[in-house]
Design a protein around this nucleic acid. Structure first.
Lengths: 150, 150
DNA sequence: ACTTTACCTCAAGTTAACTTTAGGTATTAG
DNA sequence: CTAATACCTAAAGTTAACTTGAGGTAAAGT
């Protein structure tokens, strides 16, 4: 069995997070601890890698809830092996690619919109991209010349 | 003078936001309204463009506070003209470029880290990028072989 | 005129991801 | 053995960006 005798303060220091964060991650089901005779948390060193995965995923823009689900999908909830991490990262990489692509599209629109005066709510993709509003019916519309109500 | 006789519900509908959002933006100093005899808000149609700018900026990842500051930097706090919007967007574009570059770097690391087993807290850029933790002293460190505490 | 719909203000609720505080126990250093 | 740390739990506070609710007024439709 893995040695599980690290106290929470030691783990926190090594991982570069606060003790309260570890408590919090535990309540969220992201990490796990054992208890010693005095009811204090003791950790297997595996938890450090798990925290590293959490922190890395957060940088990719993955929420704790998504991370929790990814961890939960691991067979019997164990700490990810290298293979597990590979599939997690492949998954998250797709999300990252999508986010990058989205921002790049915005950047292009932003460039295109400079000086074109197209920042009218209905036409400009900067405003409407990914909005259902862009369709028909109510929602953003272009102002008429004189801007009178009704 | 600009006609300022749009009621908040009309503006909300045209802009595709809730009335409460307009109230909220007003308390944050992002938009401005006039009052009629019965103390109800009335808007100049300019506000629609301002909302469009807010929404566009949010998509770029700019916070409301940063938007407020950008608006406040406009001479006499007026609605941005095309030139104003150009300089705002040039500014925000830089931020966007930086964000994209950052995510691209993460993507590269993610690719590089797949299968390399480097997700150890001290070495892996996925964990340490932009962290002051990466330097010296306390902070994330690599586990030793046997993972014993102290 | 009367009734519905739109507004108003102020306070409190919401979500994510934590941190802080309070009151109390376990460990550790000397 | 004792004092200083380290831990524990549960609850409340924090920030951003809004939304919801309560109690009451104004405007609009018929």
């Amino acid at each position: 069995m893995t040695s599980a005798n690290w106290a929470v303060g030691k783990i926190a220091k090594r991982a570069g997070v606060k003790v309260s964060t570890l408590h919090f991650y535990e309540t969220k089901g992201l990490i796990h601890s054992y208890r010693n005779a005095g009811n204090q948390r003791r950790y297997s060193p595996d938890v450090l890698r798990r925290i590293a995965v959490i922190k890395a995923a957060q940088k990719l823009g993955v929420s704790l809830e998504e991370i929790r689900q990814a961890f939960a999908d691991l067979p019997d909830n164990r700490t990810p092996t290298q293979d597990d991490w590979e599939s997690l990262s492949a998954n998250w990489r797709n999300q990252l690619d999508a986010r990058i692509a989205y921002l790049e599209r915005l950047r292009d629109y932003l460039t295109g919109c400079i000086g074109c005066g197209c920042l009218s709510m209905k036409k400009c993709p900067l405003y409407n991209e990914n909005d259902q509003l862009a369709a028909e019916g109510d929602g953003p519309v272009i102002l008429d010349r004189n801007g009178t109500p009704d």
